[in-house]
Design a protein around this nucleic acid. Structure first.
Lengths: 162, 162
DNA sequence: TATTGTTATACTCTATAACTATA
DNA sequence: TATAGTTATAGAGTATAACAATA
């Protein structure tokens, strides 16, 4: 055995009480904590968006379309880093809900210019407020505003490296 | 429109160059950046673990078993927050690779006491070093040691809230 | 030839529910 | 009746590859 078991970081033994087992080795990795934290955030997001008829990815697509009117599906898939084929279903879903519209482009009959409908714009504003509330509740009790900004900044730095 | 578009945080327009589209609204959310960051980390982890014949979850299971000899599958699934049914396949895979063993327990013939084999112990040490190297490379160029500790601490706080 | 959107398909990860053997 | 492990199945979420229409 070439590795000493790490000293538990801060208030550790997250799971110890329930099971009698520890995850200190894994807890020393940023990636492990990031996965666990993201799963919690995702679960909470799902609960917040469901009553609005949105999922994480449809909310993301709607946000990008609101921010970038007349964007194409290919551009959308590049911004959100998913395949074009996956975007079709997401745009279908939003179009079926009358939240965005696929508009033909004069110069190029292959592509669509996507726009949020008035209904889509209104729903997005509601959803945005709901997600902001969700993050304020979830993170507000744990981290100061400065810490939250720091966390977001560090995560963003990591994103930009990819 | 009740919301002003947020000022881009720090060096923003992550995706602007490639597509001409922005994600500033989403970029203001911690959850969005966490997802994007985690996907990068996960992709890198996969690349690091694949030559060792491990995936993220089998590495996690192996780590917990090394740290908690004679743990049961139910305890394991509680620590890693997955269902018992999903644990069966993971333990099968590690057992088939002769990395852990399912040992019968004298007092209770329903349960297994899981242990890493010598081969499993050695592979885990190699994998642990590889993952440490992966994190050092990925995060070292972006964040100071203090920042990395801070990031891990904040993520852990979020985990503990769940 | 290359690009946009599309379809069909498959793969990974995980959850649910029902089963068995033990307790 | 309750628990540990198991199996079968299904649902997300996403990727790959091939295709039609258009450039």
């Amino acid at each position: 055995m070439t590795n000493a078991k790490p000293t538990p970081v801060e208030a550790d033994d997250m799971t110890k009480a329930a099971t009698g087992a520890t995850d200190d080795y894994l807890g020393a990795f940023i990636g492990y904590n990031m996965k666990r934290a993201f799963l919690l955030v995702q679960e909470d997001m799902r609960r917040v968006l469901e009553p609005l008829g949105l999922r994480m990815m449809t909310f993301s697509v709607l946000s990008i379309v609101v921010e970038n009117p007349d964007i194409s599906q290919t551009q959308l898939s590049q911004v959100l880093k998913i395949e074009r084929s996956g975007m079709v279903v997401l745009v279908d879903e939003l179009e079926n809900g009358d939240l965005i519209s696929r508009n033909r482009v004069p110069g190029d009959r292959r592509t669509y210019a996507l726009r949020a409908t008035p209904k889509g714009q209104r729903l997005w504003e509601k959803a945005k407020a709901a997600v902001e509330g969700h993050e304020a509740t979830l993170f507000g009790g744990l981290l100061s505003d400065e810490e939250q900004a720091l966390l977001r900044g560090m995560l963003r730095k990591i994103c930009m490296a990819g």
